[in-house]
């Protein structure tokens, strides 16, 4: 079976400082991988390198494209990479306002990716937008409201709808539940888990919240100071942490 994403020895340096280094892994279709670690451990740098937002200094990121099979996304041309960015890839930002157009209605936000791949029938675009708003539990009568009129949780759900509308195969998520209160987090996680299973999505989730990866991720990668210090199945890593830092991380979670 070909992996959907093959990452080989990725390194990103900020001058003499290390962003992340020596990261390698394979991600298979339908698999969800979590990346955890403290602030400044290089999780977001790694995610941005994988999603093409940053150019890594070393290494290769090969994606299984529909047309040509595995291709290195770092050396492919910018138009091709941006095309992937709005078709087969999706990127969910921590802050919904980074991923949404705040002065465009909810329907326009969802429809943008469709129009970017040459959908030119208003009725179809709108029907698709209504369908997707429904799937993320936003009622149809909010379709013409701007995201500024939405709560934080709704904005995040709208961002997810906007990203998934073109049926991507790989979703990058940067702290998707950050900044939301726990009950909203729980519903969002529930929704995400449903969508990931239903659409057979592969996803890479960066978070510092162990509960998120426990619920969503099949596999886990623990990072510290730009290095991967432990990998394994989620339950295995969380229940039987081997590395001293992972043990610290797991034991730091507050029990209510």
């Amino acid at each position: 079976m070909t992996p959907l994403l093959q990452v080989e020895n990725i390194a990103k340096l900020y001058g003499a400082r290390i962003g992340c280094t020596d990261v390698s892994f394979d991600l298979y279709p339908g698999e969800v991988m979590g990346i955890v670690g403290e602030s400044g451990s290089g999780k977001s740098t790694l995610l941005n390198c994988l999603a093409g937002h940053l150019t890594p200094d070393r290494g290769a990121v090969r994606f299984d494209t529909r047309a040509d099979g595995l291709r290195d996304t770092i050396t492919m041309s910018e138009p091709e990479r941006r095309m992937l960015g709005r078709t087969d890839w999706a990127f969910v930002h921590q802050h919904a306002r980074d991923g949404l157009r705040m002065n465009v209605s909810a329907g326009g936000n969802v429809g943008e990716r469709l129009m970017a791949v040459n959908a030119r029938h208003y009725g179809d675009i709108r029907a698709e937008a209504i369908d997707w708003l429904g799937r993320v539990e936003i009622t149809e009568d909010r379709i013409d409201d701007r995201p500024t009129a939405f709560s934080g949780g709704m904005q995040q759900r709208l961002q997810i709808a906007r990203n998934l509308v073109t049926g991507p195969r790989l979703v990058f998520m940067d702290e998707p539940t950050g900044g939301l209160d726990v009950s909203v987090q729980a519903r969002l996680l529930d929704l995400l888990r449903g969508l990931v299973r239903e659409m057979n999505l592969s996803a890479i989730i960066v978070t510092h919240d162990l509960a998120v990866v426990r619920l969503l991720a099949d596999r886990l990668m623990v990072m510290k100071d730009g290095h991967v210090i432990e990998t394994g199945l989620t339950d295995q890593v969380l229940d039987d942490p081997q590395h001293a830092y992972t043990q610290l991380l797991v034991s730091s979670v507050l029990q209510v």
């Binding site: 209605s105 329907g107 326009g108 429809g111 943008e112 970017a116 040459n118 030119r120 208003y122 709108r126």
Partner: peptide, 18 residues
């Protein structure tokens, strides 16, 4: 440069929806 003009239609979409 990359002929990415989907956004232009978002403006027209907004017109029709409003």
């Amino acid at each position: 440069a990359l002929e990415e003009y989907g956004l232009m239609h978002v403006k027209l979409y907004e017109d029709i929806s409003q």
